[in-house]
Each structure stands twice: as C-alpha cells, then as structure tokens.
Design a protein around this nucleic acid. Structure first.
Lengths: 148, 148
DNA sequence: TCCTAAATTGGAAAAATTACTATTTGGAGG
DNA sequence: CCTCCAAATAGTAATTTTTCCAATTTAGGA
C-alpha cells in the first residue's frame, strides 16, 4: 500500500533532520533507501530494497543498503522487525508476551492478563484471518543497561 | 529461566500427542529438540539448540534440528519468532501494529487506537527499560487463504 | 575551489539456512 | 521378538543472507 504524500514529506523531513542532528552526510544512497522504505508500508528486507533501487541506481551496493538501514535503526527513524540473528523458536503454548532487547536481541516472556484477550479491530478481516495476538515490548534489557 | 516440572511434563505430553495424531515417529532427535526448547523460555535459535544438544548427542545434524523445528511449527506445538526471510525494516513512525501471515510471511500495518497505549505491567522493570509496545497479530493473509 | 573525514563500491568472507543422497531406524504387523 | 519398509537422520554440499574490508569516491565545511 502507498503512503500519502504529506506523510511521506513529513518522514523525509524527519530523516534529513535526524542526519543533520547526528552530523552525518546526506548522500543519494541514503536518500534513496529511506525514500523507498518510507513510501511503502510493506516492510521490505534489505535485499528487496536493493533489488528495487538497482534499476535507478545501478551502482548501489548491497552492503550500503544494509549499512544504511542499520544506521537508520540506530538513529531511531527506522524500526527493525524480526530477530537480529535469525529465526527463533518458542514452545510456550500458554498465553504470554515478549520483551525484546534492542541492543542484544535477547527476549523474555511477559505474563500479563490484560494482554491475553485483546479485542481485535473488525477491519482485520480485510487483511486475513487472525489466529493469535501478542504484545511485543521493545526496550533495553537489564544486562545491556548496566554495561552501558 | 527454567520452566516448572509439571509445565514441562504437560508440554511433553502435548508433543507426543501431536506427533501421534499426525502419524509421525517419535525419534530421540525430536524428543531432544523439543525437550530442549520446552524446558527453557529463552527462545533459542536452531544453532543454539544444536550446539547444546551436540554434547549429549554427538551425531545430531544441524539439518535435523532445522527440519525438526519447522515440523513443530507446522504441527502447531512451537511458534517461530522473527521473520521467515531475514530482518525487515519499517519507517512508519506513527503508532501502529502488525499483522503477519504465517504462511507467506507478508506483514501488514494495523491501526487500532485501543492498542496504542497499552498499560505495561510493573514487573517489566525487572526485565529492562521498555520503550515501545506494539501488538503482533498472526494468522493467514487473504492471498494465502484464497490460494489454499 | 580545495580538502578531508566520511561514505560507497565490489568482491570476498562469514554466518545462517536449505537441499540432497546414502544410510539408519521406529514401530506396525506378523 | 523378528522382519521389513516408509520415514527419518547424518554428513556434506549448495544456497541465501549478512557482514567485512581495502581501494576509491564524495559531501559539505573552510
């Protein structure tokens, strides 16, 4: 799905501001990667972004895309979805939720009754058939906080 | 953290029942992988599981671990965390939530006011410092439903 | 315009995951 | 308890994803 024009403009402004604030250069590559990410809400991976941009920007290296994306995550203007180091597995079949550390990727179970039976919005049926809902809390874990 | 003895027993029962129901063999490898996963709530990845089990079961192949874990996901006794095909990125800075398709891995944004300001449980502070909470809904997307 | 630290490229390396074949084995049926 | 065979595994090769690095280019301040 496409993002509206003014949302896009707003995001591009935030992007420029964040780079300026951090004293980083505004390069064509960074502009292209961010724009690509900001104008769609399909949450692409690095390869997908690289593939799309390669047409307009043949020299673009895959490494740059990766480096750029993680830079954006560090700057707080982009969020990563999914674990840092590959897929993980969970055999806990009871209702529970997750805390995930942004620094080290560690994850912890959270038990919270209020979260167990969230009422899902009706429009969800347009997207698909929901089977389960859980809350994902992101932050910094104790260990990472202390060794900071 | 360790899981209590009766929870573990219960999970092992469910595991045996699920394999039986599907007409699959209960092998030492499957028992070991599931037990390893069920007795901890640290959500390990395939490599971590393989590494731990290698000591007791020197011949265990990494392929078996991967195959076994995805089998468990298919059977519904294990849930995978993180995207199927690598890390993804999201430049949407507005409060929103995600629907993720179990079949194809596609993800969609959900907007739902009720989810935007979930009250986090106090015990969370023992785990770390929370920065953001979002709801992750899992199910089957329209496309996958229709092509079923 | 010039200069320099920062950024990018392209290719190589590392890590994660899947594929494949020969061999082994769980467990159904005798 | 044997026997047997479809199912499962081991070991290794292939593929995919991600990161690293040295050489080169460039954004943007002076």
């Amino acid at each position: 799905m496409r993002v509206s024009r003014d949302k896009l403009t707003k995001r591009m402004e935030e992007f420029r501001a964040a780079l300026k604030r951090a004293g980083l250069k505004i390069t064509p590559q960074r502009l292209a990667v961010f724009a690509r990410l900001a104008e769609e809400d399909s949450h692409p991976g690095a390869r997908a972004i690289h593939g799309k941009l390669k047409k307009k920007m043949p020299g673009l290296s895959l490494d740059t895309v990766y480096r750029t994306l993680w830079l954006f995550v560090d700057l707080g203007i982009v969020e990563n979805m999914g674990e840092i180091d590959g897929v993980r597995f969970d055999a806990n079949t009871e209702p529970h939720h997750h805390f995930i550390c942004r620094k080290c990727g560690a994850s912890f179970d959270i038990y919270c009754r209020d979260f167990d039976d969230l009422k899902l919005p009706g429009e969800l049926s347009e997207i698909g058939e929901a089977m389960k809902a859980m809350v994902e809390v992101r932050g910094i874990c104790r260990k990472c906080l202390s060794r900071k």
